[in-house]
Design a binder for these strands. Structure first.
Lengths: 194, 194
DNA sequence: AAAAACATTTGCCATTTGGCAAATAATGAA
DNA sequence: TTCATTATTTGCCAAATGGCAAATGTTTTT
């Protein structure tokens, strides 16, 4: 039952957003699949329609895309204990414009579109729980992005360090620089100045 | 029935996100109240728990707050044909940390918390429709904010002009400057240079 | 109309960040 | 280990933006 134990994090997380009885919990556990990704692996890619949702048990993802200049831009990072998916593409079943990539080795629990639909059809609270989770995640993104414009690059970097203390030195500078909205050299200089 | 005609925009908007029969539409119309706000009026204020949701029929809102330096920051603008509310505070019934203010004269349709709950209890599709609307609005915010970090101030200003062509010269510079993440003087210079 | 209050522009200069290329460091492959 | 590749740092200078205060312009009040 190793697999089942590894799902406790997911279940606890879901229970924060709604009630589930044991039967429902068991069903969710049966539908979830363990997936391990290595640092650098893509969970989903631009141009492809996402067919899975991931719950990040361990590790960190980033979501990125290429802008009109061809620069690769990291839109945001996703922490463990969160779901990762391009919600818009997943819901509408349209190709994503973003890449979702593991920036560290990741341990995931994934649901296929079908499993997700089954859960939605079987568990009456499912949609409500997922909606709350989605809404909360989006609000958090807005609240994190919004003040960044008013802060200078050093502050943005320090805030990142606070949120991901041990990540800054384990990922390519370019990921972080584009997330912070500065160039690699500027970030390098900011690092030095601290 | 003037009032009812004025509600067509709202109903059409709702119908984009789900089906409603005539009986349901009439109920929604009965629950909505017309509200006119003058430029500068607050729809809701920081520290207060929002008791209403607004559908903006005409006009433009801004959402703003005071940061730790005491600067007033405009977080985003809300266009007509959109709902305006601090979703988080409204849902959780907790005081908001933001002001929602009319930046032009506004013509609104508002729902009280009670009306909203009634609609939720009576119209089976209501929650689904509202969730879709909420999710879409939040995704749009993220997608608008996210690339701003990678653009210079002039580009951000030009993008704003494109979205709100006739607003830039009708609102205080300070609103716009803080939204763009620059100082008033910088914005003034950018304006001149165009 | 005049005064007061408020908003915007401007000058001057400092600071931050960018662009580019070369130097250095780190990583991975043979 | 050594070479090749990739990532990061650094120097040099240019461009963008900020800070502050004074000047100018606009709106509101009396």
């Amino acid at each position: 039952m190793t697999t089942f134990v590894t799902m406790d994090k997911l279940i606890n997380y879901l229970l924060e957003f709604g009630q589930l009885n044991q039967q429902q919990i068991d069903l969710i556990k049966r539908k979830a699949q363990v997936l391990e990704l290595k640092k650098g692996d893509y969970f989903s890619e631009a141009g492809k329609t996402p067919k899975q949702v991931a719950f990040i048990k361990e590790g960190i993802f980033r979501v990125c895309y290429y802008n009109s200049n061809g620069d690769e831009i990291t839109k945001y990072f996703i922490d463990e204990n969160n779901f990762a998916v391009d919600i818009n593409s997943f819901n509408q079943k349209i190709p994503s414009s973003e890449y979702v990539q593991a920036v560290t080795d990741c341990s995931l629990l994934v649901f296929s579109t079908d499993s997700f639909n089954d859960l939605s059809a079987t568990i009456i609270q499912w949609d409500g729980i997922i909606n709350k989770i989605t809404e909360k995640a989006l609000i958090e993104k807005v609240n994190k992005l919004s003040p960044m414009l008013a802060e200078d690059a050093t502050t943005r970097y320090l805030n990142f360090l606070e949120k991901f203390p041990n990540l800054a030195n384990r990922i390519p500078l370019s990921y972080l620089a584009s997330y912070l909205g500065i160039t690699q050299s500027s970030l390098s200089r900011i690092r030095k100045s601290i």
